[in-house]
Simulated assay, not measured.
Amino acid sequence: MNPSRIFRQPNKVRHALYAIGALAATFAITSVPALAGDSKQLGKTPVAIAIHGGAGTILKSSMTPEKEADYKSVLTQAVQHGYALLQKGEKGEVAVVETIKILESSPLFNAGIGAVYTFDGEHELDASIMHGGSKNAGAVAGVKTIRSPIEAALLVMNESPHVMLSGRGAEDYAKENGLEQVDNTVFDTEFRKQALDKAKARMQQVSSGYGSQQGNERFGTVGAVVLDQGGNIVAGTSTGGMTAKRYGRIGDSPVIGAGTYADNESCAVSATGHGEYFIRYNVAADICARMKYQGLTLNDAANTVVNDVLVKAGGDGGVIAIDAKGNVAMPFNSAGMYRASVDINGKVKVAIYKD
């Protein structure tokens, strides 16, 4: 389903359209085959992609078959779309942005439509992108009126002399450069409103108030990492942040090195989880540094940081990572992580639980 058509619908109609589309796609994803005409078969430089839709307490016992099919449908649509762009020779940053825009357009994830609510009942969105070849990067934080935050991050990377823009300034810059502006209510969903109500109820029961609202509602960040035909690796991340956040809180997603990082000499990483820990431990860049300076494999570096460093610190979440050879790692220390990938042979993997 074309996200641009859905954008023009009222919220209730738009969400219904997504449900119909997800149901129709369910029959196609029970066993996802390898994509036809993979890079090796066409004699092109191999390409690969991995995406995530957030990590957290995601249990099969609490997931209906219909909801599971919805998640798998959107993940499949997004990862296949990104892979197709890479096969056509599109640059990695284009594939990352167009893939993430599909996830931002789905009410299932905490990014764009479906973003969590702040304490005051609004949505403040963050996103970032980094190119592993040029080391160029762009990010926006705390924006409320930009349709696609990841598109704004790309604009900052490509056109601005800066790396990160925030709030009203970022919105003005996006508007001046022709990015679509919307009312903040476009991002509303009933599910996230209920999550806000639950978070506020917890806060009222604890004397320390703010900082005690943390529940599973904070998860759902989306991201993508790719290897393109030019041999470049690119990472991007987009999020609505943490439910009931206050005082302009910003997590790891727009922070280069914490939630997003890319270096052709090591890897590209997009993170999801409890952002404060990912910032403190510089998670995305740390994984790449362990590859670059310690000679670890992608899998070993990613697993060490996620399942050792973060666990010891008390942080939960996961990452998707890719290296210049197209190897993919998707470790997480939570019960589940919405994720999908297409490797250099065209093999598609879509998964949710720790299986």
Rank of each mutant, 00 (worst) to 15 (best):
K67C: 03
T64R: 09
V234I: 07
S166V: 14
T26I: 07
K198Y: 07
R5F: 15
K88F: 00
L179M: 11
H162M: 11
V226Y: 13
N158M: 10
A329Q: 11
Q229M: 06
N264I: 00
I58C: 07
T239Q: 05
F219S: 09
K325M: 08
Y18V: 01
H52F: 14
P33D: 12
V74D: 04
M130T: 00
T30V: 15
H123A: 03
D188T: 05
A244M: 04
K88L: 10
D355E: 15
D172F: 13
V143Q: 00
F219V: 08
V186M: 14
V47H: 11
E93R: 07
G346A: 12
K200G: 12
T145V: 10
V79H: 15
T99S: 10
A340T: 07
A69T: 08
Y83I: 12
T99M: 08
P331C: 06
G317F: 14
G54H: 03
Q41C: 09
T118N: 06
V311H: 12
S148N: 09
A152S: 13
E90V: 05
Q294W: 05
D355L: 12
E124W: 02
V140F: 00
T145L: 09
T272W: 12
H123V: 00
I129Q: 02
A115Q: 06
R218H: 15
A170N: 06
S106D: 05
G231S: 03
K72D: 01
G82P: 02
A321V: 06
V156A: 02
A34Q: 14
A69F: 14
N2V: 10
Q194F: 09
L125E: 00
S266P: 00
V79N: 11
A69C: 14
V156K: 02
Q213Y: 11
G317W: 13
A324D: 01
V342M: 03
G240K: 02
L103N: 00
T237E: 03
T57V: 08
G248N: 13
I102Y: 05
A268C: 08
A84F: 10
Y173W: 10
G92Y: 07
M337L: 10
F109N: 00
A84N: 07
G326A: 03
A137Y: 01
T260G: 06
D252K: 09
S270D: 04
K193A: 10
V13I: 14
M330W: 09
D323L: 07
A313R: 05
E104D: 09
G275W: 05
V163R: 02
E151N: 09
I49D: 08
T118I: 01
Q294M: 06
N216F: 08
E66H: 12
G54N: 04
Y247S: 07
A78F: 13
V47A: 11
T45A: 15
E276A: 06
V97T: 05
N345M: 04
I150C: 02
K44P: 06
G275Q: 03
A340C: 12
